[in-house]
Amino acid sequence: MSTLMENTTSSPGPETGAETGGGMGEIPSFDVTLRIRRYSPETHGDEAYWQEFTVTAYGTDRLLDALHKVKWDVDGSLTFRRSCAHGVCGSDAMRINGRNRLACKVLLKDLNPDKPILVEPLKGLPVKKDLVVDMEPFFASYREIMPFLITGGNEPTRERLQSAEQRERFDDTTKCILCAACTSSCPVFWTDGQYFGPAAIVNAHRFIFDSRDDGAAQRLEILNDKEGVWRCRTIFNCSEACPRGIEITKAIKEVKRAMITRAF
């Protein structure tokens, strides 16, 4: 501990941070270095490059706050997506220290600020600029599984009722916010981007097991594809990456089981 203090105080330059302030009731702060993988073809050519920014952060700051500090105060050209900033919209999924996370749900103090924090765009999707990726491949397979209610027969004159147990059956997969953290954490998806990916299967699961929906057979047919559920290798990367804690691998397994029951 003493060596650490010594290093901090003896380091030259302006990076003293707020630790030296020491006023009454002051919130403790620390310096973090973000090592951001940037790609800006207009100004820096076709090569992606790493750039480091050191900012002062507080214990309550999330990675998104540090990115804001960089964008607003240091380098306005840094580009990333964010909308609600509270873990609901799913815009700011990115690769943080090698793991797919939402920047708005990761506290800096949990990331070991002693080392630079690696921030990269999602893997397996084409990079547009800096941390912004083209989500089209992700949404293309989402559209393919028909993520809407399909019903047959006459329109009922009242609501389509459902028991609490029937609702519980697919409750977990209703939580998806389409952030792409799962699909872009899947090595099978990285290979050639043809695999439907965990998110598409999760959203198919949400309707396949909905008692009000009649499109299960169609959706199972769509996912019974060379690039469908059978490319899942059950490595649990998706479940680990999901910011909503959806048991994705389990959902994929349930879809597989429904297909096998249908085939035999």
Partner: peptide, 10 residues
């Protein structure tokens, strides 16, 4: 708040 920037190798 202070910041530093370093250009990392491509």
């Amino acid at each position: 708040m202070t910041t530093t920037q370093t250009q990392a190798a491509a």
